[in-house]
Design a protein around this nucleic acid. Structure first.
Lengths: 105, 105
DNA sequence: TTATTAAGAAACCGTTCGGTTGCAAATATA
DNA sequence: TATATTTGCAACCGAACGGTTTCTTAATAA
């Protein structure tokens, strides 16, 4: 199954999971306690997040700690960069001014 | 149908469309010429992009010009901000150093 | 050893997705 | 006016998604 970061962050529950484990590693059970859903549903999301390398696992006995692979988030930032150039440009500012004038008219 | 930006950018074809119309407005036909797919498929993507406000339409006779609503892209940037803080932090840098040392070992 | 607990795997279900084909409406052109 | 063009809409299809329930495996605790 081909996965990429953008598919990983597409689901709101997965974004919530990402936020949860961004600062500290957590087990699937601990993560699932934060949602009104079954552990298996969370487990599936973790699988998808793992498949697109947004998350890494650390085995500790029978428990598995999941944590965010922050490096992968930079990919989104890198993709955004081309558009950041646009919205920071003078042309866009000018465009905003023009459309503001239009509205007033 | 509830849509958000993250769903909008989830599909690779839609990201390509976004890149195409980022700098200049284009009609569905003109956009479709850039893909090995039917005009209707592109039209569906444009519909989704419109629903999540990533794209705006401008009617000109029977033609409709689609262009990127760059403001909406800032939402992704804003969401990324919380993670940018993490990957730019000293703690993370330290973590990188540690894992580099681990690999060398 | 025997329960118990943590987690993944498999099967299933309804919905959405991405795509196609076909059609209707509106505008432009002969 | 008749015809061609641009576009959106509806119906349909197979695959993937998000979720549940059930089962298996492996590690811990009694």
């Amino acid at each position: 199954m081909r996965r990429d970061v953008f598919q990983g962050i597409a689901d709101p529950t997965r974004r919530a999971i990402i936020a949860l484990i961004a600062l500290q590693a957590m087990t699937p059970n601990a993560i699932a306690e934060n949602f009104n859903t079954t552990r298996q549903a969370v487990s599936k999301h973790l699988r998808i997040l793992t498949e697109c390398d947004l998350v890494k696992q650390e085995y500790q006995g029978r428990e598995i700690y999941y944590s965010l692979q922050i490096e992968k988030m930079k990919e989104i930032d890198k993709w955004l960069d081309q558009y950041r150039k646009i919205w920071e440009s003078r042309f866009n500012t000018l465009d905003n001014i023009l459309s503001t004038l239009k509205k007033k008219k």
